[in-house]
Structures are given as C-alpha cells and as structure tokens.
C-alpha cells in the first residue's frame, strides 16, 4: 500500500501537468509544451517566497498565481499567437519552454533546492500504508482540480465554448466565439493553476531545473493514454502511470521506470491513437 500511495503522489504531479495540457488544448487546440516548465517556475517561486523571503503561505500563493499566469500569457502572446503553422509552433513552444528553464537557471542556479513541507515530516498511516501528509494533500488537490475543471467544461457556457473551439476553430469563430480571447484565457487559467500548485508540489519534487523535461513527456503519456480533451480519463491515466512506475522501480529497478513508460507510450500511440477514452484525433492526416 505504501508503494501505491507513493505512486499516487507521483501520479498527482503528472495529473497536474496533463491537466494543464488539457485545459489549453480544449480552449485553443494547441499542446502547451512549456506547461511543465511553468509548473517548475511555480515551485521555484514557492521556494523564493517561503525560504528566501520567509513569507507566509498565502502571499506566496498569490504571488505564484499572478507571476506564473503572467508568464503563461506572455508565452501565448509572444510564442504562440503570431505563429500559425504547427511546425512553427513546435519550434517556438520548445523555445518558450527552454527559455523559462534558462531564466530559472540564471535566477536560482543549477542546484536542486528543497521546498519546505507544510506539515511536519512524519508519515501518517492511511489504508495500511505510510504516506506524508503533504503527499495526501497533493493527491487530493489533483483530484479536486480535475473534477472541477471537468465539471466546468461540461456544464458551463465558458466550458462548452472552449470545447467548441477545440472541435473546430473556424466554425467556432463563425458562431461568434472570440477564439483569441478564449486562447488567451485558457493560457492564463492553466498558468494560474500551475502557479498555485507550486508550493504543494515543491516538497515532493524539489525545485529542479532538469525536472520539467521528464514531467513534460510523462504528462504527455498520460494525455495520450487518456485522450486529448478528456480530463477525468487523463488524470486517471496519470495516477496509473505513477503507480506503475513505483512498482517497476521497486521490482525491476529505477533504470527501467522510464523505459517501460516509453514502451507503453509507443504501443498506445500505435494501437489506439485516440487514447483509451479519447474523443477525437489531434489531427487528421
């Protein structure tokens, strides 16, 4: 059970990455490659606020919320909006991701930094397994955010509008939907969430500039498994990946973790390109 709980905690991190992908994908039809980097910016801001400035948690949350949302919006304005073609976007988005990491390196250096835990570091016992209280909070946070976003996308006008944009950008435009404002909005929202979750992620992941690249790809595996646009399935896939990873690490060795995930990714993409609960394909060839 301890392994399962550890897997769920790691899975929660992946779920948050995939959630960010999905929000942006739903509202604009693009995959925000830099989302994991935005999350890492949130974690570094948490370190900065909690450790370097010794602030209380609330102002740290507000600051991270604002700054990361701003960064996401800047990314949309500079690297995505002016570029129409997917080949161009691939380049500029990889650029944006690398630039965010580069700025982190310049400001905070290349050493991994430890973000303090909210609660004391004593594991509690749940369902017969040991887990840190912070990790439980993280799992809860991922579940609650996923549920909230899924409900918003299904039952509110804004959510339905976003779905319409991801289905067909042009006909959404013809229906009078402001596609640009929608794209702007989803970037701001995903950035804000990435900022707010930073202080909760930090204790588990540390603030490390090398982490986003692997978070980005594993978040993408969850997205591919769950299917673009399906929030609940994607988060479920993310939790499953986390658990599988922990078991592989325990029984085969840590070196095999990513290898197995990679194999799963390739098989899923080749066999069920729409994801296990996918709505539709990213693009039709």
């Amino acid at each position: 059970m301890t392994t399962v709980l550890a897997g769920l905690s790691v899975g929660a991190v992946y779920a948050l990455v995939a959630l960010g992908y999905n929000i942006v994908y739903t509202g604009s039809g693009t995959l925000n490659f830099a989302h994991a980097n935005l999350m890492m910016l949130g974690i570094f801001l948490a370190y900065w606020g909690l450790v370097q400035l010794n602030w209380m948690i609330i102002p740290v949350l507000v600051t991270a919320f604002a700054i990361v949302a701003l960064a996401a919006v800047a990314e949309e304005r500079i690297a995505i909006r002016p570029v129409r073609h997917i080949q161009g976007q691939l380049v500029t988005m990889v650029g944006a991701a690398t630039l965010i990491t580069g700025i982190i390196e310049i400001v905070w250096g290349q050493q991994a930094l430890s973000v303090p835990a909210f609660f004391n570091n004593a594991p509690t016992h749940v369902l017969g397994g040991a887990v840190l209280p912070d990790d439980l909070v993280l799992i809860g946070l991922a579940v609650v955010l996923t549920a909230a976003i899924a409900l918003v996308s299904r039952f509110t006008m804004v959510g339905l509008t976003a779905l319409a944009v991801s289905e067909d950008r042009e006909s959404a435009q013809l229906r009078g939907i402001n596609v640009r404002r929608m794209q702007f909005g989803v970037f701001a929202l995903s950035g804000a969430i990435a900022g707010v979750v930073g202080p909760f992620l930090g204790p588990l992941t540390f603030a490390s500039y090398t982490l986003p690249s692997s978070l980005a790809v594993i978040g993408f595996v969850a997205l591919a498994l769950g299917g673009y646009g399906s929030f609940v399935a994607t988060s479920a896939a993310a939790f499953a990946i986390g658990v599988v990873q922990q078991y592989i690490s325990r029984y085969l060795g840590a070196d095999y973790e990513n290898l197995v995930i990679f194999a799963i990714l390739v098989i899923v993409l080749m066999v069920v390109p729409n994801g296990l609960a996918g709505v539709r394909r990213e693009r039709t060839v």
Binding site: I78, G95, A96
Partner: peptide, 15 residues
C-alpha cells in the same frame, strides 16, 4: 546561460 539563449533564439528565429 545556454538554455536561456537557446530558448530565446528558438522563439526569435521561429518567429
């Protein structure tokens, strides 16, 4: 500065 420079150049060249 490698990452920052590479990232910024990708955006600029891409644009």
């Amino acid at each position: 500065y490698t990452d920052a420079v590479d990232g910024a150049s990708l955006i600029v060249f891409g644009l």
